[in-house]
Amino acid sequence: MPVATVGDAASAERAVTTDDIDAYAELTGDRNPIHLDEEYAGETAFGGRIAHGMYSAGVVSAALARLPGDVIYLSQNLSFENPVRPGATVRAEVEVVEHVGGDRVRVETVADADGDRVVSGEAVVLSVPHGE
């Protein structure tokens, strides 16, 4: 299988449910009431529950996994730009923009939810042929 090269792109998407948010909180231990308590969250600037920011980042990770070769995260910077509400669909898109040496490439990463940018950033990943 080939490795990821400049110009390669991939995407992934996931509909966000309250069950997903609850499961993410249980899995990670992040039980911030902005994510879990509708009454509490309704009193905040968000006006209701929102998904964990890293939930959207996880969809970015799923998109990276769809690039050619075996892809291993080395680093990621993220900007969280807008909240994601239950019922939204997060769509992540990634594109390899630079070969940075060896088996490493730099990848632009973005995610939108129902037309709003929710995450942007870039990653450096290791991309090797499958099975190596």
Rank of each mutant, 00 (worst) to 15 (best):
D114H: 10
A4L: 01
G58H: 05
A23L: 14
L67P: 03
A123W: 07
A45F: 15
P68S: 05
D37N: 11
Q76N: 06
T5D: 10
E108L: 15
R49A: 07
M1W: 03
L67Q: 04
A25R: 06
L36R: 12
N82G: 00
H52T: 00
A65H: 01
E108Y: 12
V125C: 00
Q76L: 09
P83T: 08
G53Q: 09
V71A: 04
V96Y: 08
T44I: 11
S56T: 13
G53R: 04
T44D: 14
E108T: 14
R117Q: 12
T89L: 06
D20P: 03
V97R: 15
Y24K: 05
A9D: 11
A65F: 00
P86Q: 01
G102M: 13
H35L: 07
V124Q: 03
G115H: 04
P2C: 09
V3R: 08
P33S: 01
G102W: 12
G115C: 08
A88L: 09
V97M: 00
A45R: 14
D30I: 01
D19Q: 13
Y55L: 15
H35D: 03
V6H: 01
E122T: 04
H52E: 03
G87C: 06
Q76R: 06
Y55A: 12
E81F: 01
E39W: 06
S75D: 10
A113L: 06
D20A: 12
L36H: 05
